[in-house]
């Protein structure tokens, strides 16, 4: 049986939630936020996870080995607002065992 990983997500109101994320459902971090309803519908995942809207932007708060930003993610972040050095697109980070202990905060809606 595959194991869940634990991820801490701080929502846009500043409340931190510790959630269990399945590693075997081909889910990404944006979908995880939606599944736990940590951001109102219509404010996240607007492009369905194609790196085309930046509504899933989050800030990575701790040192966890994440996959590098891909071309699409770089391009979208270069057009997004409120971008910081630790910005990532949640929809481009797939949930794997490597994400155990990850802490992120959702970027403001724009």
């Amino acid at each position: 049986m595959t194991q869940d990983v634990t991820i801490k997500i701080t929502d846009r109101e500043g409340i931190t939630h510790e959630v269990q994320a399945p590693t075997d459902m081909n889910m990404n971090v944006m979908e995880l936020v939606c599944a736990y309803e940590l951001a109102p519908e219509g404010t996240i995942g607007l492009c369905g996870g194609m790196a085309m809207c930046a509504s899933c932007q989050c800030y990575v708060l701790n040192q966890v080995d994440l996959p590098e930003r891909n071309e699409d993610e770089e391009a979208m972040l270069s057009e997004a607002f409120n971008v910081k050095d630790n910005s990532r697109l949640g929809c481009q980070i797939y949930i794997t065992n490597a994400l155990e202990g990850l802490e992120i905060a959702l970027a403001p809606e724009s």
């Binding site: 071309e71 699409d72 770089e74 391009a75 979208m76 270069s78 057009e79």
Partner: peptide
């Protein structure tokens, strides 16, 4: 004007 050299 764009924030980086690459365009999509």
């Amino acid at each position: 004007i764009h924030r980086r050299n690459e365009f999509r």
